[in-house]
Design a protein around this nucleic acid. Structure first.
Lengths: 123, 123, 123, 123
DNA sequence: GTGGTCTAGACCACT
DNA sequence: GTGGTCTAGACCACC
């Protein structure tokens, strides 16, 4: 798993996993109320230590997207309001990163909106 | 330089460097016609093997953003039309990635343009 | 029954049991004059060694809350005055612990009484 | 560290530690802005694995009572408003536990306040 | 089988 | 030296 990497941003694995699952929830790929794979199972699938997976889950729980039923397993929250809230926060971050990126390339705000309009329109 | 990798997609270092310099050219941080540091110098600055740096330069030359003048060194192209072309290709990629990302989060194209307009407007 | 202990203070099991039964008597959950389960029976219920249970009973007898009638078994005392006395001692300990706890948190006596009044009043 | 314990409430070690440090902060035994011992040092003092201590600290950080300065160490927050907020939450819990305890002993709310007044007054 | 906790030991980056 | 992260492996309670 050790490779020459993005070099500045060494995002912890548990955060990457957390982000990934978060997006699956946001996008609806994981439905509210649905069961999540067990720690051990997902850990194996993703080739990661169960503790690492455990931590990712713990963080997701803390953010209110998951909840644990002690012996039954973990489930996506049914609190769609919370999901939506996270969805909007995430979108805002994505947009913010995008706009910053474009500004660094030397584009003006007007150009950015114009190009986005054009791109989403034509395709 | 060894770090935990992005854990799924590991972009080669020479591409990361290439991308970085490309953006400096596009944004004007590196001016058309200006001299570029030597392979060795930049390699040392970025803590990278000179061969890696060499390859990044080679690719940038192939894309027409750099050219070598035997004995004198490497220079940013003065072909601003070419720079602009690359700038627009790059922008298109950035936008494409962004839009895909938003679509995967479950946003509609209309929402995307609306949110971008909103973001660039208010801030 | 083996669990990670309170990590500093480990109260002996027989005392925990004693305390528990004492409270049942004080609160009236066990009525004066009523029969108590046998050592063996209770020991099994609580998953504890009969010797431990025996010791708990012995202590309760010493404090006058239980008495043994040869062949017939053990009974809760009918001496309600004694029960009341223990009840008040216990209360005093509970209160003492509570007040100490609050003092250690940096609250003044005046604050403590005020907060208790407030809490018992509003809820 | 394994001992016969409180048997129902097996509070995780990291929570016990967290609680302990929280109280030290609340009571002023640890001053706002003051440095906290290193993970390794405290772990050794408390005879606990560094990872366990790490977790306790992480939780305290999440609750806003601690913050990390990457290589310099950990410090108590200087946000006294936050500390006060936690102090009041904690007090409320302590009071709530106490009152419940007394109610289970069969005391009435009026008695409880009377006894507390008496206790704090006379001593 | 599930999640939760703990330990021991390792490596990293930063100073 | 500091904190942060990860792994491997263990044990527990609950079902």
């Amino acid at each position: 798993m050790r490779v020459k990497a993005t070099f500045d941003s060494a995002v912890p694995i548990y955060m990457q996993i957390m982000e990934k699952i978060k997006r699956q929830i946001i996008s609806g790929a994981r439905q509210p109320g649905s069961k999540v794979e067990s720690v051990r199972e997902l850990a194996q699938q993703m080739e990661v230590n169960p503790n690492t997976m455990q931590r990712a889950f713990a963080e997701l729980e803390r953010s209110g997207l998951l909840h644990t039923e002690r012996t039954a397993g973990r489930f996506i929250t049914e609190d769609t309001a919370r999901i939506n809230q996270v969805r909007e926060e995430t979108a805002k971050n994505v947009i913010s990163d995008f706009v910053d990126s474009m500004l660094h390339l030397g584009f003006l705000k007007e150009e950015i909106t114009r190009l986005v309009n054009q791109y989403t329109g034509e395709e």
